[in-house]
């Protein structure tokens, strides 16, 4: 296969501690689920790339997890930088995780201005017959934020429901919005990543 560069899109997970961001991350990376008691195993997880094909376009979704920084401190503003999409995650069985979303939304629009924003209600398996957060609540929230939200999803990491559909849909949105923007984006605006230097060949005199 030809090695043309596939556009890379940073996608970040935002939301309260314990709503299942790392579970979404884990489903995304290797489609597994661990229970709360195994939490320690999130150590060392940073971000993960996966390629999606939408029509004739391919793009690489690069999903980032918070690293648990939101537990007692705030997340660094760096986390948001260069993000093309942000998924605001709340737990369908926890109404307060839904109500704090506006704060997370504010962080996203402040630090990642250009990011598309998506809403994800996780733990749909715990929703039950009397949902803590109703569809009407979600709709109202979206209206209140002036339609900043590009898509809403319900997922269950435990059952593995809705995750893949969500990412495929996000990939569609990003391809759509990038079509025009990718061409406009001048290299000027961007810096570069530093990488290890290739071993110089004339290093033979080191011995």
């Amino acid at each position: 296969m030809a090695t043309t560069k596939i556009p890379e899109q940073k996608v970040i997970l935002c939301g309260e501690y314990g709503v299942g961001k790392s579970s979404i991350f884990r489903r995304f990376t290797n489609n597994t689920f661990v229970t709360a008691t195994d939490r320690q195993s999130t150590l060392g997880l940073d971000h993960f790339d996966k390629i999606y094909t939408v029509g004739d376009k391919t793009l690489k979704l690069q999903l980032w997890d918070t690293g648990g920084m939101e537990r007692v401190a705030s997340i660094t503003s760096s986390y948001y930088k260069f993000a093309e999409a942000a998924i605001l995650v709340f737990s369908l069985d926890n109404v307060s995780s839904f109500h704090t979303l506006s704060q997370h939304l504010l962080d996203v629009v402040t630090y990642a201005e250009n990011a598309k924003i998506f809403l994800c209600g996780n733990k749909s398996d715990l929703e039950g017959s009397k949902p803590q957060v109703t569809d009407a609540d979600i709709e109202t929230f979206c209206e209140h934020c002036h339609n900043l939200i590009s898509g809403t999803y319900k997922t269950s990491c435990k059952l593995g429901v809705g995750i893949e559909e969500m990412f495929t849909d996000i990939a569609c949105h990003l391809v759509e919005s990038n079509r025009s923007r990718l061409e406009l984006q001048s290299m000027e605006k961007h810096g570069f990543k530093i990488s290890p230097r290739e071993e110089p060949t004339e290093d033979s005199c080191l011995c």
């Binding site: 060392g44 918070t66 690293g67 920084m69 537990r71 007692v72 503003s77 760096s78 930088k81």
Partner: peptide, 28 residues
């Protein structure tokens, strides 16, 4: 010389994330 996009403040934050990823607990 190199200079990071968004300023030097990005540097400590990058290392803080490294620490958090490896289990460090943060309190501000």
């Amino acid at each position: 010389y190199l200079y990071p996009m968004y300023g030097l403040g990005e540097l400590p934050q990058g290392f803080a994330r490294l620490s958090a990823i490896y289990g460090g607990t943060y309190m501000l």
